[in-house]
Design a protein around this nucleic acid. Structure first.
Lengths: 175, 175
DNA sequence: ACCGTAACTGTCCGATCGGTCAGAACTGAC
DNA sequence: GTCAGTTCTGACCGATCGGACAGTTACGGT
């Protein structure tokens, strides 16, 4: 039942957003009562937190992996890791996509926003050059919305093209 | 008063999203009653529509301008025009950013989603190559979130770096 | 058979939402 | 002054929201 609730919530949050999904809707989709949701998860936000936990852990693991890498390999590894993570957790990305403006400071998101910032630093190579910083933000957004939206392309192709495109974006001439 | 309402709504929608902003909040910020909002605009969505109209017209004008251009100039013009539009209507972009997943089919958005799709076609050069299509979606998202977020870079620099980065993203080696 | 605990539900609650409506307050024309 | 029309408001409405709570069912250990 608990799993059923999570599955329904993931599906509905991704389709209609967090704010756009009522507990009633989740309960109806999962085939249980609204009170049952609150029994398993004490709060609506707790459902969101649990849904985003695996993605957050993946992001933390990526962050740790990058730290252990020599600086010259970091950018490429950050891009590859980020793209793979975003593709694996497509629906979570879609949820975050809608949640970002409204609840960027919400504790339900955990450390995800902070690690997003660290990812930008990694992809910009730690540089203070505005070009690198803007480029890193662009990559973050590019992968974000491409994964959230439905582009009619097989996943493996999407993966490769995202990585290639992101590296192109970051590639400073005479760098 | 009408202008005051629009200014408050633009500010609040951009900060908290459309769904996250109540009529009461707009009225309080504008210094009038909730009923006064409904007097000037018959509906909450009507406020949104009016707020997004200038940006939508700018997008339509860009679309028309691209149509009158020889194909080989279209991609660069699309990128430049899109970046300038997104920077000029930053707050509107931020509103759209949050609205996209939830109300993509909402009539309040007018033709904006459709013209977004046409922009993708223009930036992909009308190609069916997955790489070009993914690249165009990436540019759309990259400019979108970079303008919606607050990157600590002066506007002119941001403009130039966005255009340069986007062209890099789209630039396919060996045609 | 009995009981304690976990799983689940129906019902109710206060808050907030977008929107309605009858009328007050202001305004310029005559 | 007064009257018509625009602008604005307080009070109210039904709907919906997230959540609380008491009570019921299912079940495994003894």
């Amino acid at each position: 039942m608990r799993g059923e609730i999570l599955r329904s919530a993931l599906h509905l949050f991704a389709a209609n957003g967090f704010g756009g999904t009522s507990l009633h809707a989740i309960a109806a989709d999962a085939g249980c009562s609204k009170a049952s949701l609150i029994y398993h998860f004490s709060t609506k936000e707790a459902i969101l937190t649990e849904l985003l936990t695996p993605a957050g852990e993946g992001l933390a693991a990526l962050d740790a992996r990058l730290d252990a890498l020599p600086p010259e390999e970091r950018v490429a590894a950050a891009v590859t890791g980020y793209v793979e993570l975003a593709l694996r957790y497509r629906r979570e990305v879609k949820i975050l996509f809608e949640a970002t403006p409204t609840m960027i400071c919400n504790p339900a998101l955990g450390d995800i926003p902070a690690m997003g910032e660290r990812l930008v630093v990694a992809m910009s190579g730690g540089s203070r050059d505005p070009g690198r910083i803007v480029g890193a933000h662009m990559v973050l957004g590019a992968v974000f919305v491409t994964c959230a939206g439905e582009v009619d392309v097989p996943d493996e192709v999407l993966r490769d093209e995202l990585i290639a495109g992101a590296l192109r974006t970051l590639d400073h001439r005479a760098g």
